[in-house]
Amino acid sequence: MASDTMSRRALAPRRAARKPRVVMAVREIAFLVAAALAYSLVRGVTSDRVDAAFRNAEDVISFEKSLGIHVETELQGLILDHGWAVDLANGFYIYGYWPVFVLTLIWLIVRRPVAYPFYRNALLASGALSLVIFALYPLAPPRFLPWHGFVDTVTLEATTYREMNSPTFVNEYAAMPSLHFGWILLLGIALVALARHFVVRIIGAVMPVLMFAAIVLTGNHYVVDALVGGAVVVAGLGIAVTIERVKRGRAVRAAIADARENVAPAGDEGVAPASDGASTIPAQRSPGNLSQVR
């Protein structure tokens, strides 16, 4: 009985420490969900530029051909005759995004709370940059251009997903950048950098590769979309680094100011003020010391 009581007492502080993390997790997830909804609504504001989106799509295809990276239809051709491969691509495109996104953020909040603000800032910064690109450069996804040989595998095999992503809330002409790839890349970086288990780090390294394949094989994004998505995330990380440096600089300056305020009075304690140019003499002395001075 005594041992059980002691073990419960030992676990109590741990449980108490977990409660603030749970509250933080709920608060942060609610905040990010609200940001994601706002992102979708703002993203939808630019959905009326259809003609420009299709013109830009033709330009992107020409640009990729000039670089020799227009391989989307060739890659799709490798899986279209294999239902299991199409299902895998569709499945990872659908379930490898939001579920992974939310679970990884929860892991960061609960298990790596110190590092979480850095990745949250990178996430929000990359999202803000993406909104600017969406507004300036509307782009029709490959699945809207079947005359180029693209196939919308998700619509063919997973119509429910398309119905859930209503054009009312989702701008279908915002293919660039691909945050499906970019944000999974960001969270993969977090897992590789922060996870202790080797298997989790491997998962973090493989996730972006699989998502890159999924967005291309399903006809949802061009190769260039993924490259720009990665560049936006790198820029977001750069902004997050800058924010951390500013915060640390402020913390250092505050610590220095606080130290000066505390040290200055301490240096004056026990010293009597000097008068008529006489040297300072300790204000308090023992009788023995006074006799020695005499």
Rank of each mutant, 00 (worst) to 15 (best):
D276Y: 15
V23G: 02
N220Q: 15
M6R: 11
V170Y: 03
V50H: 00
R15W: 08
Y173T: 00
E163K: 15
R260G: 03
A52L: 13
M176D: 04
M207W: 13
A255V: 04
P282M: 13
L123I: 06
R49S: 01
F212E: 10
S130R: 08
T5V: 07
V233T: 01
P208C: 01
A85C: 08
A52N: 03
V206F: 10
T153W: 07
F101Q: 04
P287F: 15
T104A: 10
A52V: 15
R15E: 00
D258F: 14
G270P: 11
A34W: 13
I61R: 08
E261C: 05
A195R: 07
I215T: 14
A257R: 08
R18W: 02
V45Y: 03
M164S: 02
Y95H: 12
Y161I: 14
R250H: 14
E72C: 05
A266V: 14
A213Q: 10
V26C: 04
M6C: 04
R120W: 11
E269L: 15
R27M: 05
A257S: 10
A274W: 13
D152T: 09
R245D: 01
D81A: 07
N289T: 14
V200T: 09
A16Y: 00
A213I: 03
R120Y: 08
A190H: 09
T242S: 09
A251E: 14
I109P: 02
K19V: 12
F118W: 00
A259E: 11
D268M: 13
N90H: 13
V151N: 03
S130G: 07
D59T: 14
A214T: 09
I281L: 12
N171M: 06
V209D: 05
K65C: 05
V224C: 00
G236F: 10
A213W: 07
A226I: 11
R143D: 04
N289E: 15
A140I: 01
G267Y: 13
V263Y: 06
A158R: 15
G219E: 09
V200S: 06
T104N: 09
I203R: 08
G96F: 01
A226E: 05
A158E: 12
A190G: 05
A213N: 06
